[in-house]
Simulated assay, not measured.
Amino acid sequence: MEIERKFLIKKLPADLASFPCHKIEQAYLNTNPVVRIRRQDDAYFLTYKGEGHMVREEYNLPLNETSYCHLKEKADGIILTKTRYLLPLEGGLTIELDVFGAPYEGLFLAEVEFPDVESANSFTPPHWFGEDVTFSSGYHNSTLSAGKDRPQ
């Protein structure tokens, strides 16, 4: 089970380059339910995500590079690219800050995963976070991959 909240970021932290990061490429084989493939650095995964916004099922299975490349040819829509920065928060939480590549340059999204719903609901985001878009399907990566205009 994945429990997370998602926020727009209007201005990136000045020291962002000092944090660890991953290069991510991901594509969608299906969007309802979500079936995604991802290359994160040199690792490959197939992911199933159930319905929902803040709370939903998520299963990750390892892939090899050959399988990833084969499935990538079958993907629908835009193949998303992003750099994911990992910023620590108090209480053992981590901000996963995504800086998107083309065609979504300028889109910055932060996700924070929680151990339980109560923690997610009581979370106070840092001052540099923008709008909470947890319950907006328009900011799901699966929606972005369809090439539809994101909400403004």
Rank of each mutant, 00 (worst) to 15 (best):
N60T: 13
L80V: 11
L87H: 02
L107M: 11
E25M: 07
K82V: 14
R39I: 13
P126L: 14
R150E: 12
K72M: 09
I3K: 04
F100E: 10
R36P: 01
D149K: 13
F7K: 03
N64Q: 12
K82Q: 14
L29P: 04
G138F: 13
P33R: 10
P151T: 07
Q40W: 06
T143V: 08
T124M: 11
V99T: 06
S119G: 09
Y104E: 01
F108I: 08
P126S: 09
T143F: 15
S136H: 14
L109E: 06
G92R: 06
Y59D: 02
E57A: 12
Q152E: 12
N121H: 13
K72L: 15
Q152V: 05
Q152L: 14
P33H: 03
R39S: 12
M54F: 01
I9A: 02
D132A: 08
G147A: 07
P126E: 13
I79P: 03
R56F: 08
T124W: 04
H127G: 09
V99L: 02
C21Q: 14
V112Q: 00
T66F: 14
T94Q: 14
A27D: 08
K23N: 12
V133N: 04
T134M: 14
A17M: 09
Y48P: 00
L29E: 04
D76A: 15
K82Y: 14
L87Q: 09
A43N: 08
H127D: 15
A102R: 04
I95P: 03
V34H: 06
G106E: 06
A17T: 11
F7N: 02
F114A: 10
